[in-house]
Design a protein around this nucleic acid. Structure first.
Lengths: 213, 213
DNA sequence: TGACCGGTTGACTGACCAGTCAATCTGTCC
DNA sequence: GGACAGATTGACTGGTCAGTCAACCGGTCA
């Protein structure tokens, strides 16, 4: 067998993390037992504590892994030379595709961390806030460039934008909105249209990122 | 003492509910003990179980009491003969004023129920959904009247609108946004402006409900 | 007066489960 | 082979707390 200590045949740690995602998504963090995770992963109870200090740390790990990727994506988008509306579209697209690609993980992150303001949301408030700030920075720049109106503070706009995105994902998670490939792509356009263009009926000659239905 | 059986000098049940609001807001539902509520209310532990079947039932009661008021407010607003943008302003105003009037209660409802999708949010999903539908109905009518654009589904618009409102309240609760009388009134206008008017810079001749700053 | 009853008390119990730990297994290296 | 290290096992412990319950209190009414 060509394998070294550094690379075991099966990464049990990863196995446990992936199992935890499924269990958290199915039962919820607080409702599930550590033994449920061990069972789902097909490992002994004690092994979970070999790789993690606590049940909390498992969720922390899952969240931080994914959130860092999101933060980097936001920064990267902001660095590009594209109109602000396309930047917001790119961010929305990234988040929606994250959900499309791994709904369980996104459900866990949103339901158990981002929206769980009293437990993990509080712990990771600084990280979550960083995403808001990234978005606010985009809005601020757009305001200075005259592309976005200036009477709404960037912080406020960021919250409204992120709130809309998260609420739509929550709608999918709890079957308040229909899901599906078509819906995911439409949602991207609709979120950006709602926040940037507004619901009001107006003459719309310049539709930007994403095609209308 | 002029009092009958029906009206005790102090309504201990109410006392417990009010204490629970403070305790839930301070410590969170899952983190606090039933004895904390009893202590805060200044009553014996057992009395809590005289008036309520379970810890859960206390939160259920608090939520339902308040949410029914919100649902009625939404229906009432929709019944009025005012432009849709003013309807949304009235709803936003109602929610923001609810927070202004009793921040602890609104924090508990949002943090422990509305956003707690895995626990009480799931239990009360039908009630929460009803608020979305009420808002969606307003949007739909506005679309039919040609006041709102029709390419965004009412359900979707309702989610985005409610998401923005909730996110702003959450921002206040967790000190991500500055609070204060001025901020509360501004927020009402800004939320409606963002969702109806959009962030885009355009010619704005007709500003509706609420004065700009 | 004394019987009755809803309101009130707080010590106690039973269940649950995160986290521990000593034992075992497996592979590696000399 | 045998000694060492890290991986793996799962029974067990300790603490926590929701909910129970038997006793007590104080007002009312006949």
């Amino acid at each position: 067998m060509a394998r070294t200590n550094a690379e075991p045949a099966v990464d049990k740690r990863r196995l446990i993390l992936d199992a935890a995602v499924r269990v958290f998504a199915r039962q919820g963090f607080h409702t599930c037992r550590v033994s449920d995770i061990a069972d789902e992963a097909g490992v002994a109870y004690g092994l979970v504590y070999h790789y993690f200090d606590s049940k909390d740390q498992i969720l922390d790990t899952l969240f931080l892994e994914r959130w860092d990727i999101l933060l980097r994506a936001i920064q990267q988008v902001d660095a590009e030379e594209i109109p602000p509306r396309e930047k917001l579209y790119a961010i929305t697209s990234f988040i929606v595709d994250s959900y499309r690609h791994d709904p369980d993980l996104m459900q866990v992150i949103i339901v158990e961390v981002t929206r769980a303001a009293n437990t993990f949301g509080r712990t990771h408030l600084a990280h979550i806030r960083e995403a808001y700030y990234g978005i606010a920075a985009i809005v601020e720049r757009a305001q200075r460039a005259g592309t976005f109106r200036s009477d709404i503070t960037p912080d406020f706009a960021a919250l409204a934008f992120y709130g809309a995105v998260e609420q739509v994902l929550t709608g999918w998670i709890f079957a308040l909105l229909p899901t599906g490939e078509r819906e995911y792509d439409q949602a991207k356009t609709h979120i950006v249209e709602t926040i940037c263009g507004g619901l009001d009926q107006t003459d719309r000659t310049s539709s930007t990122a994403g095609r209308a239905d």
